[in-house]
């Protein structure tokens, strides 16, 4: 790979996040470390969405469903471990767990499964129907989470402590950051591999011209569905990390605002750019922090900025920094 400007910016973003967290650690600023952790987690959620939305052209407004599902898996398993109760007793007995190594695969698998179910139905449609339907399904799960009392209902579900990882003290902010940072790196590598693979070729071909892909013997529905499932799994993983960060999960993770924000990370950073979600999430969190410090009504300014980005800067932040062209395909 040649060292393009975009590659350089990507490296600066990635290493910059690590350095920011380490400096904050040295200066004993746990709040900054938490912000960096948030950036890492939201980036992972965005990377998941970007695979579907950016590379596959599947404008999902329902990724909160997967983010929230991952989050609740972590919350529910931890809660059962805490209370020493069974998650379910039939057909086999399933106990709760506090181990991240157990929680992650379960969360990824279940989020992917939800993505499979939602995908099978919503991928029968396209365009604006797809946007509305993914939004509607996420909203359905949101209302379910609110009205199902077993896991806290509207009040949410506290986990009190962070889940554990062998050899680390996850309650120490910098150690938990490092876990999320490693996952960010893994997600980026995974996404990069997929995008450049045979499957990635078919996926991007499907985005551009389904008829063409069909006529060379590839079923576009299957390609889109698999991309949607992988996408849901990655975003679900981000959800579990988010529960651990907050030591709490509530139905708001399923809300349409969550879907909107994940989408904002992707578009703010630059659609179908590998590091776009990282750039977008970093910008978003920084703005939330700085604007939030200046005015109570920071969302107003965020909205205006977003409008400006959409109307005048196609290509997002990375697009602006690399002056437009040169998509990473």
């Amino acid at each position: 790979m040649t060292l393009t400007r975009e590659t350089a910016i990507n490296a600066v973003l990635f290493v910059g996040l690590l350095i920011a967290a380490l400096i904050a650690y040295l200066l004993d600023e746990p709040f900054i470390i938490t912000m960096a952790t948030k950036v890492a987690i939201f980036s992972i959620a965005g990377i998941g969405l970007n695979l579907a939305l950016g590379y596959g052209g599947l404008v999902s407004f329902g990724h909160a469903a997967f983010f929230g599902f991952g989050g609740y898996v972590a919350g529910i398993l931890a809660n059962h471990a805490l209370n020493n109760t069974l998650v379910f007793s039939w057909p086999i007995e399933m106990a709760g767990t506090n181990s991240m190594l157990m929680i992650w695969p379960v969360a990824i698998f279940l989020s992917a499964l939800v993505a499979l179910l939602i995908g099978v139905l919503s991928l029968r449609t396209s365009g604006v129907y797809f946007i509305m339907i993914t939004l509607a399904f996420a909203q359905m799960i949101y209302y379910f989470a609110i009205s199902w009392p077993a896991y806290g209902g509207e009040d949410g579900l506290p986990t009190y402590i962070r889940n554990s990882f062998p050899g680390l003290n996850t309650l120490n902010p910098i150690e938990f950051f490092l876990i999320c940072f490693v996952w960010l790196g893994v997600s980026l590598m995974l996404c990069s591999a997929i995008v450049h693979s045979r499957f990635g070729l078919a996926l991007q071909g499907t985005r551009q011209n389904e008829q063409r892909v069909t006529s060379v013997g590839i079923d576009p529905f299957r390609v889109k569905l698999v991309a949607f499932v992988i996408s849901g799994g990655i975003t679900g993983l981000a959800g579990t990390l988010y529960t651990d960060l907050n030591r709490f999960v509530s139905p708001s993770v399923f809300s349409w605002q969550t879907s909107g924000e994940i989408m904002v990370f992707v578009i703010l950073g630059g659609v179908a750019r590998l590091f776009g979600p990282l750039a977008g999430a970093a910008l978003f969190i920084t703005m939330e922090f700085t604007l939030g410090g200046m005015t109570e009504h920071w969302q107003l300014w965020l909205g205006l900025l977003l409008l400006f980005v959409v109307l005048y800067t196609p290509g997002g932040l990375i697009g602006v920094l690399t002056s437009g062209r040169g998509k990473d395909v």
């Binding site: 009504h297 107003l300 909205g303 205006l304 977003l306 409008l307």
Partner: peptide, 12 residues
Amino acid sequence: LATFALILVFSE
């Protein structure tokens, strides 16, 4: 995205 941004502006 643009109309999502409009929601933020209107609500806030």
